[in-house]
């Protein structure tokens, strides 16, 4: 247990007088690709913000790579990409990444490397503001990849991308995981769930399931993961 990449214990977050996360507990193993799935508004983003340490919490604890979430030693060991691309619109991709690389103390050569990884080399000198929504998202993802972080927290990284690019990014995620990087990837599209090694299914701030895709299929008797999710929702409503 001590070498888990993330340990969340009894995490509680209140926003605007509403319980967004209610007593959440789970662990994430190193080198895994954990999918955080659930309908929009279920608390996925809040949970990811708590993991990277920018969310005010109201109880429980989050330990990341053996340190309390948000603590100083973690600040160049985690890559975080928000749902809305957080890159400077009035800089080129290269300029934007160079800045973040100097803040992280990442080598200058890593800039071209991460641009290549997200498939934007041909746009490296284009202003971010002139890119399409999907390209902007990938530029933001590139920032998260800078400095080869041990943990990547990616909020809906594949939203708005065509199937070819989505495939390309998922290949990248698995390649990184094979090298030992831990990934937490959120999505509200269930067909991405099958690509994860582990799934956290969330609904209204609580975990409905924490298992591998195969185990979920077996438990619910549903081949389709979307059906499996619906099955769990109905079961939960039935018992409560």
């Amino acid at each position: 247990m001590t070498n888990s990449a993330i340990v969340v214990a009894g995490l509680r977050v209140i926003r605007g007088g509403r319980d967004v996360l209610r007593d959440l507990s789970f662990t994430v193993e190193p080198g895994s690709v954990t999918g955080l799935l659930g309908p929009s508004g279920c608390g996925k983003t809040t949970l990811m913000r708590a993991i990277v340490g920018v969310q005010l919490t109201h109880g429980g604890s989050v330990t990341v790579l053996g340190e309390p979430a948000g603590s100083k030693p973690l600040r160049n060991r985690i890559g975080y990409a928000t749902q809305n691309p957080a890159v400077y619109a009035d800089l080129t991709i290269t300029e934007s990444l160079r800045y973040f690389a100097s803040v992280l103390g990442a080598p200058r050569a890593s800039v071209a490397e991460v641009i290549e990884q997200v498939g934007l080399t041909s746009h490296a000198d284009v202003l971010v503001g002139q890119l399409s929504g999907g390209q902007r998202g990938r530029a933001s993802l590139a920032v998260a990849l800078l400095g080869s972080p041990e943990l990547l927290v990616l909020d809906e990284p594949t939203v708005g991308l065509d199937p070819v690019l989505r495939e390309h990014l998922w290949d990248l995620f698995h390649r990184l995981a094979a090298q030992g990087t831990t990934l937490v990837v959120s999505s509200h599209v269930m067909d991405e769930a099958a690509r994860c090694t582990r799934l956290l299914l969330m609904r209204e701030g609580v975990l409905l399931a924490d298992d591998s895709p195969d185990a979920l299929r077996a438990e619910t008797g549903q081949q389709d993961l979307e059906q499996a999710f619906l099955h769990l929702v109905r079961e939960k409503e039935h018992t409560s």
């Binding site: 920018v54 809305n84 691309p85 890159v87």
Partner: peptide, 13 residues
Amino acid sequence: TTGTLERLMTMPL
């Protein structure tokens, strides 16, 4: 508002 500040706050800045 664009989230770049939040991103910087997760970094060693």
